[in-house]
Simulated assay, not measured.
Amino acid sequence: MQSSPATDFGTARRTQLFDQLLTLFLAEGFAQLTLDDIAARLRCSKSTLYTLAGSKDDLVVAATVHFFRGATAHVESRVGAVDGARARITAYLTAVGQALDAASARFMADLGAFPPAREVYETNTAIAAQRVQDLIAEGVAAGEFRDVHAAFAGELAATMMVGIQQGRVRAATGLDDAAAYRELAAILTGGIDA
């Protein structure tokens, strides 16, 4: 079944609005913005925003989901472009850091303080940790890594990923998120090398 041109335009417009909304939120956070502020900044009506979500809270959650969906696509495209477990883990963690570079400290603080959006973030962190665990298991099976407990290594990665995303690693080390993810990749893959 093909969509009509009107449906295509509607979908394209919704995607464009979500992209603009996400750019705004990533740069400035969302807690201090009202729906009126958001509508003015996006140059649309509040009723247009209500076509995206039923409330500001729902809009924040939808934008957060949109962010992680885009980040996941970016990360997986980077992983798919390389061969070997070490390169894939390095590409994965580096791409996660790059995706998070777009998020301001204000956005991350607002994300942490708003339970529905924080839940989206925590779910995605758990998925990312599982992905790292799977990549480690693939490397062990291929003989590229020594026989390590993949779940433990995945949990180690997840703990560090949360620390990076919450700003604790930056505060303790001065490393920005992308550099912290590169260090995590180096330590993780070096520590499990065959």
Rank of each mutant, 00 (worst) to 15 (best):
A151P: 02
D101L: 10
Y92E: 02
A109R: 15
E28S: 13
I136R: 02
V60W: 00
Q98F: 00
F18L: 15
D83G: 06
F30M: 07
A71Q: 05
P115I: 06
L24A: 09
L156V: 13
A172Y: 09
A171L: 12
A105M: 03
V140Y: 05
R13S: 10
A172D: 10
I127N: 08
Q98E: 15
T48L: 07
D176T: 04
G191Y: 01
M161L: 15
L35W: 04
H66L: 02
F67Y: 12
Y181T: 13
V132R: 10
G174P: 03
G84H: 03
V61T: 12
D36N: 12
F114I: 07
Q166K: 11
L188T: 10
R43C: 06
L188I: 04
A137G: 03
D110M: 03
E155Y: 00
L17E: 06
G84R: 05
R14P: 00
T159H: 09
D110F: 10
L24W: 04
R78Y: 01
T51A: 09
Q32S: 15
R13L: 11
Y92D: 05
A63T: 10
F25T: 00
P116E: 08
A31K: 09
L184R: 03
G139P: 01
V132I: 12
A95V: 00
S3I: 14
G154M: 10
D58R: 13
I89V: 13
R168V: 10
M160V: 14
M108T: 15
K56T: 09
A12E: 15
M1I: 13
D8T: 14
I136S: 06
F114P: 06
Q130E: 15
T11Q: 14
G143I: 09
V162G: 08
Q32V: 09
G80W: 04
F152Q: 09
T72P: 00
H74C: 00
Y121T: 00
A91Q: 00
T64P: 07
V82W: 03
G154V: 07
D177T: 15
G143S: 01
V132H: 05
R69V: 14
C44K: 04
R182P: 00
A151I: 08
G10R: 15
L42A: 02
I38T: 07
T173I: 02
I127L: 14
T48W: 05
G10D: 12
L135S: 04
G97I: 09
A158D: 03
A150D: 10
F114S: 08
V96E: 11
A126K: 12
Q130H: 14
M161N: 09
R86P: 01
V79M: 06
R146E: 12
A186M: 07
E183K: 10
E76H: 13
S77V: 01
Q16D: 15
A71V: 03
G97L: 05
D176K: 05
A91H: 02
V79D: 06
A186G: 05
R43I: 00
A179D: 12
T11G: 00
D101A: 14
